[in-house]
Nucleic acid binder design. Structure first.
Ligand SMILES: NC(=O)c1ccc[n+]([C@@H]2O[C@H](COP(=O)([O-])OP(=O)(O)OC[C@H]3O[C@@H](n4cnc5c(N)ncnc54)[C@H](O)[C@@H]3O)[C@@H](O)[C@H]2O)c1
Ligand SMILES: NC(=O)c1ccc[n+]([C@@H]2O[C@H](COP(=O)([O-])OP(=O)(O)OC[C@H]3O[C@@H](n4cnc5c(N)ncnc54)[C@H](O)[C@@H]3O)[C@@H](O)[C@H]2O)c1
Lengths: 220, 220
DNA sequence: TCCTTATCGAGAATTTTATATCGAGAAAAA
DNA sequence: TTTTTCTCGATATAAAATTCTCGATAAGGA
């Protein structure tokens, strides 16, 4: 990947649209790997997912892999390259705050390790939940969050508390030295510079759907 | 014919980035409404959410409302305008397929009505779940899906089954006449033209976070 | 009344992202 | 071997999205 230095261009940050497409390639590639295929072309991926082949090639280029004419990309290598690029090969320990219905669902979802995430502890302010474990992850009191985050050098915090409690949860996570927050609460978190926030707000996705549907229906 | 149609159509489709930002404005606006404020400027919204003021104005323009110099936009009107635009004022009946941990969490989330969505029935192939209700939504057998969707004229289907079952679920929903699918399974659904698919894949959001975090840490 | 200030909204400019074109190279077929 | 076919990847072009500029206008004083 140092090969890109030959042009001496300044390294540009990966576009977010590209980052969002990479997992989709990954899902398809893993499926293809099962079928025994050895290589795949950008043309094929594009047709399968409804993208433009050039776009697929450009996206793949960011991960640092090179293909070969006529055959395309080696599937195993490409999977590895994307996972490496997204840092999904190093499993990162994470805290989850708010063990309600969504938080519980996430703790129960065994596949996050495939995406580089490992929940080592969950936190809640509900006395009934503290001390129990949810799918093998212990639920601890909020009082323990800051110290434990510091001690364990946790980098990622997931927020699944109600909106009114989200900012406070974020503040605690940041006090504990967290670097990145995956926020599911429908609220804009205020964080100091250097702390990453990714909003996984379902309402954003839903807005696209409902607006387009209303638009489509109105054209009937 | 199509040419004149095109030139006559002055209404351009709303950019997806705009659609995704609108719910974020909405959350802030509802908060401001509680505080008793009557109006808000694009400048304020932008500063609060970290956007550009012009972008906020352009986004708002799509919803059809006009502001006034010096004061900005009437908060109540603006909320109404956005909700109308996203079609969140007309509650749309929806089916949910797959009552596992994520599906259950969604059925239990009482706020989807605020976003125009009402789950009238859920479906699963697990005999243990059929016949029960989850947060007042009945869980029915998959056999009943197609007919019931037709009879009730359901437009939206939510897929929360494992990846391997997602395409089949989508096929049934489409057979039942559904127009839009909100897909949570990590797979690309193949659907006929005219059927909308919105992927709410958490992994896409997570990819952005993990890549940026790795990037930031590597720069320390 | 006049002045200052904050804001909208239209259009231009810029940046970012997506798509088209095409030469070169590898594989398969002739 | 030679030809055909397919794909990569570099570059060019187009489209989309964002940001800048600025005149007009309303509100709140001076
Ligand atoms: N459930 C869904 O399908 C869904 C969908 C979209 C968005 N969300 C959002 O995700 C978040 C969680 O939703 P949910 O349905 O799981 O809610 P929930 O009410 O089921 O769970 C919230 C949890 O947070 C805990 N909590 C409350 N205040 C706290 C505090 N100050 N400190 C620590 N813990 C606290 C509660 O004890 C509870 O366990 C909400 O912000 C919601 O808007 C949920
Ligand atoms: N739980 C999470 O936090 C999470 C996170 C990211 C993505 N997802 C995705 O969401 C989907 C659901 O996840 P989950 O954790 O709720 O899974 P789950 O295993 O808890 O639930 C799946 C449900 O689907 C039902 N089902 C299975 N096959 C079916 C079929 N053919 N027809 C009808 N119903 C069927 C099962 O009976 C079960 O109730 C998966 O695709 C998963 O990848 C979940």
């Amino acid at each position: 990947m140092t090969k890109t230095e030959k042009t001496n261009k300044k390294i540009k940050a990966t576009p977010e649209p590209t980052l969002r497409r990479l997992p989709r390639y990954l899902h398809l590639l893993k499926f293809l790997r099962e079928t025994g295929d050895k290589s795949v072309s950008s043309t094929y991926i594009a047709k399968e997912l409804g993208f433009d082949p050039t776009q697929v090639r450009k996206d793949i280029e960011y991960t640092g892999i090179v293909g070969r004419p006529k055959t395309g990309f080696n599937i195993v290598e490409l999977i590895s390259s994307i996972e490496e690029f997204l840092n999904w090969k190093n499993i990162t320990d994470a805290f989850l705050v708010g063990t309600g219905s969504l938080g519980t669902a996430m703790l129960g979802y065994g596949r996050f390790k495939d995406y580089g995430l490992n929940f080592v502890a969950a936190f809640d302010n509900n006395e009934m939940k503290i001390g129990k474990t949810i799918h093998e992850t212990p639920v601890l009191s909020m009082e323990k969050l800051v110290d434990l985050a510091k001690r364990m050098h946790i980098n990622i915090g997931v927020i699944t508390v109600p909106a009114f409690a989200a900012q406070h949860s974020a503040d605690l996570l940041i006090e504990g030295g967290i670097r990145a927050i995956w926020n599911f609460a429908p609220i804009h978190l205020k964080v100091p510079e250097g702390v990453l926030v990714e909003n996984a707000q379902l309402t954003q996705s839903l807005a696209v759907l409902t607006h387009k549907l209303a638009d489509a229906i109105s054209k009937d």
